[in-house]
Design a protein around this nucleic acid. Structure first.
Lengths: 190, 190
DNA sequence: CGACATATTGAGATCCATCAACCAATGTGG
DNA sequence: CCACATTGGTTGATGGATCTCAATATGTCG
């Protein structure tokens, strides 16, 4: 899979960071715990932090009129940010919420920005992570445009079965862009 | 608009590039013309170039079973690449095709990659452009998930009226994710 | 246990795709 | 320069995927 190539490159780059850079990175991050249901970011607030998940599950969602739309379900060893808000430091459309109790390393956008000026390797790291996110977004769009509800569910089941085991169906339906009822019917037909 | 902030940052960064960097960039790019209908990139080929459009219109699309899906319509002073293929140098799912006669500056991915090693500012430029693309993708996803066919058309009409004037309805329908017939009916109801 | 969140099932409505016929404009070979 | 093919768009009829609303069931936690 294309994504794995990118992950490998990111991993290699991190492995090869000199210890100065690494310890600088560690100095600006902070270990935090959030309880299930807690919000790490509210709509209309600035996304001042990135959240590296050590343990647990997060989700990103926004409100559309009467209903929530889940944009992403995020697991251990991945990063949660409200991208547009984080990059531009403008109010976020999205919430970030703890689906389970979570442990995260949170890093202030500003601190990371300053560190990049000092350690150019971090700009490359940032670029690779952004590339990774863009490819993930392209894949999401591709799936929405080419697969129907059943196919999207089956694909999720195949590719990320842990999601289905660990996340309430309400969120999964919303993540897949279908109603809870439709998801229930798809599942009942195996 | 959020996107404009990013465009401004990109522009500023380019304005502030030293002349060495700028002329290096110019040395690795090549002015090319393509006729309406010609392919700048074929499916299953590597996307070896980025295409900066000097004049004309390009589109990106892929095949899904029996029909084309247009992913992007690209105008003057913007860049066309098959992102995943360009970044990972793996075969492209997408075609890039000239909608009109076009003039582009094309730059080899490899040359740009090498230049980045020499001119760190270019890594920042690459990052900003990638951020811009990721935000564009987020916006596309948002629109597909929150707006119906009519709303998507009206939004396009409002935000990028030139697209509707210059691109065949067949492509616009496909870009909006609706059938040509539906688009025709939407338009007839003003 | 009761209360509240989560999931299932049914019936009806809606949006939009598909298929098919048709039309208008443009281009091309003889 | 005409006849015909091709491209791009319109219009009508029909069906399917999925949503919404409502009732019911199941699960979970204090």
């Amino acid at each position: 899979m294309t994504e794995e190539i990118q992950l490998k490159k990111i991993d290699e780059l991190i492995q090869n960071l000199d210890s100065d850079t690494l310890s600088a990175l560690e100095n600006i991050r902070e270990l935090k715990r959030y309880k299930k249901g807690e919000f790490l970011l509210h709509q209309d607030k600035l996304c001042r932090y990135s959240f590296w998940i050590e343990q647990g599950i997060l989700r990103k969602f926004y409100w559309n009129d009467t209903k929530e739309i889940t944009t992403e379900l995020i697991f251990e060893h991945d990063i949660a940010v409200s991208f547009g808000s984080y990059v531009l430091q403008k109010p976020s459309k999205e919430f970030i919420q703890a689906v389970t109790d979570v442990t995260v390393y949170q890093t202030e956008a500003q601190s990371f920005q300053m560190l990049k000026a000092k350690f150019p390797k971090l700009v490359e790291l940032d670029l690779m992570m952004t590339e990774y996110y863009a490819m993930w977004l392209e894949k999401r769009l591709f799936e929405f445009r080419t697969r129907n509800a059943t196919e999207r569910y089956l694909q999720l089941l195949r590719q990320q079965p842990h999601i289905i085991l660990e996340v309430p169906l309400t969120y999964i339906a919303s993540y897949l862009g279908i109603s809870l009822e439709t998801l229930s019917r798809i599942r009942s037909k195996i």
